[in-house]
């Protein structure tokens, strides 16, 4: 009875997606609620690695690789921020009223978003108006067999240029904030 209800809810969507997403949500809740900062960072790493496997299930291997590398770098950066800081825990209770208001607004947001999601195309049946062009002519016009690469580096190369600019600006900003010389 219960299993039939679950099966009707899921339909033909792949079941492993649900398992991975529930795992990610559980890890995210642990990351948010745990006291110790280092454990929190490890839990957020679990979310990121789960996301990498989810990308693989959703047939996006390039993204899975990039997510894996970025997740590891992210963990290293975050651990660098917390380790050797002796006072890593913030004492004191949170205000009850803050939690109550934020939860109210989040539930409101969830309801509104859920009602607007019904206008999206059904899961598994994308519209692909633009992508039809890319899929048809990608090989002939760019010579790349990996169509994601052909979109990044040819059809939308200015996007990538902007990305590199943002990356450069952010790294320069981080170096400027952390520099030792020239500071008062």
């Amino acid at each position: 009875m219960f299993l039939e209800w679950v099966a009707s809810l899921i339909g033909e969507e792949p079941i492993e997606l649900y398992i991975l997403l529930v795992f990610m949500i559980a890890a995210a809740i642990i990351a948010v609620e745990i006291e110790d900062l280092l454990s929190s960072i490890v839990a957020v790493g679990a979310v990121g690695l789960g996301l990498s496997i989810t990308f693989l299930t959703l047939k996006a291997p390039d993204l899975a690789i990039v997510q894996l590398v970025v997740e590891i770098l992210c963990l290293i950066i975050l651990i660098r921020a917390t380790i050797k800081r002796d006072i890593t825990q913030v004492k004191g209770r949170q205000r009850f009223i803050t939690i109550l208001t934020s939860l109210t607004f989040i539930v409101l947001f969830l309801v509104l978003a859920w009602s607007s999601l019904k206008n999206l195309p059904e899961f598994g049946y994308p519209i692909m108006k633009v992508a039809k062009n890319y899929l048809g002519e990608g090989l002939a016009r760019t010579g790349a067999t990996n169509l994601v690469t052909s979109v990044i580096l040819d059809f939308r190369a200015y996007d990538t240029l902007g990305e590199v600019t943002v990356l450069f600006a952010a790294i320069i900003g981080a170096l400027a904030v952390l520099r030792k010389i020239g500071r008062k």
């Binding site: 993204l63 997510q67 770098l73 992210c74 921020a81 994308p126 979109v151 990356l167 952010a170």
Partner: peptide
Amino acid sequence: MVDPLPQAIVLTAIVIGLAVTALLVAIAI
């Protein structure tokens, strides 16, 4: 085939996310 266009956009977004995290951590330190 699945849609390659959102995949390309998200590939950009992931890398930018790393840069944003690095900047935030620098400011926090």
